[in-house]
Simulated scan of single mutants.
Amino acid sequence: MSARTSLIVDVDTGIDDSLALLYLLARDDAEIVAVLSTAGNVPTSQVAQNNLAWLELCGRTDIEVAVGAAGPLSTPLRTTEDTHGPQGIGYAILPAPTHRPSDRTATQAWIDLTRERPGELVGLVTGPLTNLALAVRADPALPARLRRLVIMGGAFHHPGNTTPVAEWNISVDPEAAAEVFAAFSEVPADRTPIVCGLDVTERIVLRPEHLRRIAELSGSTPVETIRTEDAPSTRSATSNPVVRHLSDAVRFYFEFHRDHGQGFIAHMHDPFVAAVALDPDVAQYRSATVDVETEGRITRGQTVADWFGLWGRPPNARVALDTDPDAFLDDLVDRVATFARTVDRAVKGSGPEA
């Protein structure tokens, strides 16, 4: 087994955040130190409940879940239940968690954990950057203590998915994103943040066939079939609880993309960025100086990259621009299926796999 990567995971769970958590739990080379909850797809309290519920379903109540800020730094919170469902996890109804969030806030967790393990932890943010921005405000030395920061956010040579130029995570709290990019401009060049925007994440296209393969490989029966002609909100009847709840969540995402003219698919931004956090070599990058527009009447939330040093400022990001989507999706399917089978056997009392 390769060396483990220790992660602080800051999420706004979220359908694709949910699959990102499952993917990380499925990887032996990942140690999730804490899951921090931020407002974005749904309010913070619901995000925390989703995180607790997924972890408990998977038998990982040992992982800390912390509650973050209730909203952006300086503007009202916008959520996106139309995209992710009323609870943020599509049609899935997870068992209510029996454990509770940590006593410390997400902001304090960022500070404490990086002080306890300087130079060891990789930060993975798949939601708005509010919690991290607040942590950096309170402790400006924090960026120097992270081993690496990986962000799902932004759009560079790609249209936005919230406005014509802005990606969702950045657009929710542009001020937080701008502060984070500025703060991380001081880290050594080999530790500049990795930014995975829509240029690469919208190439990670999950289809019903992928869920069928996960069900097959996990031994779940009947094998999952999700069809565009199914009645809205059709629920999965497959036997494996992880596969069943994942299917119910992703079905909503398929329907959202179809209803917005993108086909019966789901862009899985966050699982891919989780893979990058563990192995940056799965993508190709270009260095740039990245800043965020916070004032523009029609460009607020736009991530702007200076590729040629026109601002006279050193690069502060490595922007992901290419990857092999099929290779990643094959890896995702295999790992999540194996993990789902392991969880199911543990629940049934047959112990770990041989």
Rank of each mutant, 00 (worst) to 15 (best):
G219K: 01
P222N: 09
V223D: 05
T228H: 14
T228V: 15
E229Q: 15
E229F: 15
E229Y: 15
E229A: 15
D230Q: 12
D230Y: 13
P232Y: 14
P232M: 12
S233Q: 13
T234G: 04
R235S: 11
S236F: 03
S236Y: 11
S236H: 06
A237E: 15
S239D: 11
N240G: 07
N240H: 13
P241A: 12
R244Y: 09
R244M: 09
R244C: 10
H245T: 11
H245F: 12
H245K: 07
L246V: 09
L246I: 05
S247A: 15
D248C: 05
A249D: 10
A249C: 14
V250Q: 01
V250S: 02
V250I: 14
F252W: 14
Y253N: 12
F254G: 03
F256A: 08
H257C: 13
H257N: 13
R258D: 15
R258F: 12
D259S: 14
H260T: 13
H260R: 10
G261V: 10
Q262A: 14
Q262S: 13
G263C: 05
F264E: 07
I265R: 09
A266M: 04
H267S: 08
H267C: 06
D270Q: 15
D270N: 15
P271Y: 02
P271N: 03
P271S: 00
F272P: 03
F272I: 01
F272V: 00
V273Q: 04
A274I: 07
A274F: 06
A275E: 11
V276H: 01
D279P: 09
D279V: 04
D279C: 09
D279T: 11
D279R: 07
D279F: 06
D279H: 06
P280Q: 00
D281F: 00
V282K: 00
V282Q: 00
V282N: 00
A283M: 06
A283Y: 04
A283Q: 06
Q284R: 03
Y285D: 02
Y285H: 00
S287E: 08
S287H: 05
S287D: 09
S287N: 03
A288C: 13
T289K: 08
T289W: 12
V290F: 08
V290Y: 08
V290T: 09
V292N: 04
V292A: 02
E293W: 00
T294Q: 07
E295A: 12
E295Q: 14
G296N: 02
G296S: 00
G296A: 02
